[in-house]
Design a binder for these strands. Structure first.
Lengths: 240, 240
DNA sequence: ACGTCCCTTCGACGTCCGTCGAAGCGTCCC
DNA sequence: GGGACGCTTCGACGGACGTCGAAGGGACGT
């Protein structure tokens, strides 16, 4: 392989990488993906209104994202539903968010506009908890030394102990990172995601600490849950 | 938070994400980062010649990458050395590579051009093994059911057993994924990376299975290493 | 069957950005 | 001190791309 070949090889692979990166290199498309991070399927129109652009522009963006393999679509009648294709896409977006400068690291005052309130308190984000409850849980785990929450979040030894004592088993052997920081628009602060976040969420649902409100992704903290979170992490019931 | 605020929030965060993605959305910059994935510090000129562009163009690209936090630089005299800033950057690039379409999935016939040969056989890539030897190891682990090597690579139960029996301890509790696929230009096929890949590499070096050739990142398989790889994974000594 | 709604296609506009070469500056070596 | 080398700045060029509105197609409900 001579020098020219090396150049070509480097550029070719670089072009492949760049092609994927280019899909997220536009503010509108990135906003689409961030919105879709909640695991829901959105229609093209919803995304267009969310991003404040014309429907025709949204169409071309969605074409790029679907053809690029980041999103998958389902057509139902006159509606085009899209959602995130794969967990790898979620990890890619999280990797980007980990390097993006985080503005407004402190939480905003939450609006009390009724319909959004349940969602703001607690909801499913992909397969883990989000909302102010998730923030409170994350904060409490950090304060108690169960999590390290720097630029590279990780579970501490005490954290692993706490999980096993609580009866939460984190699936092992997967390539999924145990602890991830996940960011979405409501609180604009990262909360606990990754394998541990998912296991925590699963455990909370199966133990009856939280229940889904209807078929939405909004969650309700049950009285048993209030007690459990207080016993385990010292969360004041008023915060839930 | 009314609808307009939600729009603005979505766009703002989207812009942040897009800003990072934009850094890798150019073929030349992506090729830079891919080259730097070997953990070495390259000079601006080396990168320019590698990518086949003018020095002035390389300067502007490096400015973007350094200001964006993906690379860090060290000035020595008239030289400007850059290297990857952080493990988070490596993970981002690996996340992109995981979604990029992989051309030439089969290995190329290796040139015998002497100087490159040692590097092509075995070398360090960041903190794990790369080169044909790394490919052989990865392939053997997959064949023996120690690794699952699909779109989401993972260690199997047998793989975990094999590691402990071999005396390789993988640091736990970190947020680093146990198994990752790492791609670089020489073989254009992914090889074992992640926490397991790093542990394997560390073990091979401390056990004297491999030694560094001088201060380069090229590696030499020792006779003891040849025996060990054969005993553990059945690799024919001729392949090493 | 008609109007409404969701999405798509098309053409046009403007901006952004990667590229180069020439010139200049600082460093190193002879 | 002189020359070579590595990097940077500047201006100019050209292509790529995100945006819109208008027009059209297809599905749904009345």
């Amino acid at each position: 392989m001579d020098t020219v070949d090396i150049q070509r090889a480097g550029q070719d692979v670089g072009v492949n990488l760049a092609g994927v990166a280019k899909l997220l290199a536009d503010g509108t498309r990135a906003a689409f993906c961030l919105a879709l991070l909640d695991g829901r399927a959105w229609t093209a129109n919803e995304l267009a209104r969310y991003a404040g652009i014309a429907a025709s522009t949204a169409t071309s963006h969605l074409n790029l994202l679907v053809n690029g393999g980041l999103l998958v679509e389902e057509r139902h009648g006159r509606h085009r539903y899209v959602r995130v294709a794969d967990r790898r896409v979620v990890e890619l977006i999280e990797s980007l968010a980990a390097l993006a400068p985080q503005r407004n690291a402190r939480p905003l005052s939450l609006s009390a506009s009724g319909r959004q309130q349940a969602l703001a308190r607690a909801r499913l984000c992909y397969d883990h908890l989000a909302g102010t409850v998730a923030l409170a849980i994350t904060d409490a785990m950090v304060e108690r030394g169960l999590l390290e929450w720097g630029p590279e979040p990780a579970l501490t030894g005490n954290g692993a102990l706490w999980l096993s004592e609580t009866g939460i088993t984190v699936p092992t052997g997967s390539r999924r990172p145990p602890v991830r920081a996940c960011l979405d628009w409501t609180e604009r602060r990262p909360h606990l995601a990754g394998a541990v976040g998912a296991a925590l969420c699963t455990h909370a649902l199966t133990s009856g600490w939280m229940t889904r409100i209807g078929t939405t992704r909004a969650l309700l903290v049950t009285p048993a849950g209030r007690e459990a979170w207080h016993d385990l992490l010292g969360l004041p019931p008023t915060e839930l």
